[in-house]
Nucleic acid binder design. Structure first.
Length: 264
DNA sequence: ACCCCTGTTCGGCG
DNA sequence: CCGCCGAACAGGGG
């Protein structure tokens, strides 16, 4: 599920727990989502602490607790955050449950491409890097964008849009949406893009990110009917503009859909 | 049964 | 050394 705006939606699911104490921590310590994380430390230190606030950066989230405790969460492919009632008994894929007196904060992830990290310290963890600009912020600007593209001239543009170091929070469907709106073939090598194409790509990247953040709920149903996303999964998917079948291929390691008329 | 998958990392190779 | 690409991770759903 999770790209930029969906991540933001999931982050807010835990908001009801802000200001409340975590009374008990359930986790499946040997699960892959905890790779590299000291789960004993996590459970011991988070227990008894209040959730203070949270933030999202690209596809990552950071939850802050009292007494200098931090929880990082990445949703991977199938992760989700939700609220259950107090004393909720974790189901099979509920790898982390923070039990509060009035509710439980649940992290579920069937495929476990997601990740939970823990940090204890007065300042934010080192893995919470701040050096990649958010797409919707001022510092994601033309110079940054051009510099990043120039470093990946040989890669297909689709693959570059998926690189989190440059396009923070962009995932598979957003990349296809951006390329469709920009009239650029996904397989086109970055060095071959014209300056007009790069200009368009920059504007559409901002547009898709902004518009998604302002409208998106937990799935794509709130996005405009005219967007490509509603067509890209079904075999019969057509270009919203030309009503002709979409082309499909694996580019940058991901299934990619595009319109042969819009994009050439 | 078989094939697909909104993500990231790692090893191989050019 | 740089950077691209496919495989691997793990499980559910069509």
């Amino acid at each position: 599920m999770p790209e930029l705006a969906e991540v933001e939606w999931h982050r807010k699911q835990w908001n009801p727990g802000i200001g409340a104490r975590v009374q008990v921590v359930f986790l499946h310590a040997r699960k892959r989502v905890f790779r590299g994380t000291n789960t004993r430390d996590l459970a011991r230190r988070i227990t008894g602490q209040k959730l203070l606030d949270s933030q999202a950066r690209g596809k990552r989230m950071l939850f802050r607790f009292t007494n200098s405790n931090w929880l990082g969460i990445h949703l991977g492919m199938t992760g989700s955050l939700r609220i259950e009632g107090p004393e909720y008994a974790p189901a099979k894929h509920d790898h982390l449950v923070l039990g509060q007196s009035s509710r439980s904060l649940v992290f579920r992830d069937a495929r476990q491409f997601g990740r939970v990290q823990f940090h204890h310290g007065s300042s934010p963890p080192s893995w919470w890097r701040a050096d990649v600009p958010e797409i919707v912020e001022r510092d994601f600007n033309r110079p940054f964008f051009e510099r990043f593209l120039s470093r990946h001239g040989k890669a297909p543009i689709k693959a570059v849009l998926l690189m989190q170091d440059g396009f923070s929070g962009i995932g598979n469907w957003m990349a296809d949406e951006i390329l469709w709106r920009s009239h650029i073939l996904p397989a086109k090598r970055v060095a071959k893009l014209t300056s007009a194409e790069r200009h368009s790509l920059f504007l559409e990247t901002k547009f898709v990110a902004r518009h998604s953040l302002s409208t998106l709920g937990h799935d794509d149903s709130d996005l405009p009917k005219s967007w490509l996303i509603h067509e890209r999964w079904s075999k019969e998917g057509v270009c919203p503009k030309h009503c002709i079948p979409l082309r499909r291929a694996t580019i940058g390691g991901r299934t990619t859909a595009w319109c042969p008329i819009c994009q050439r």
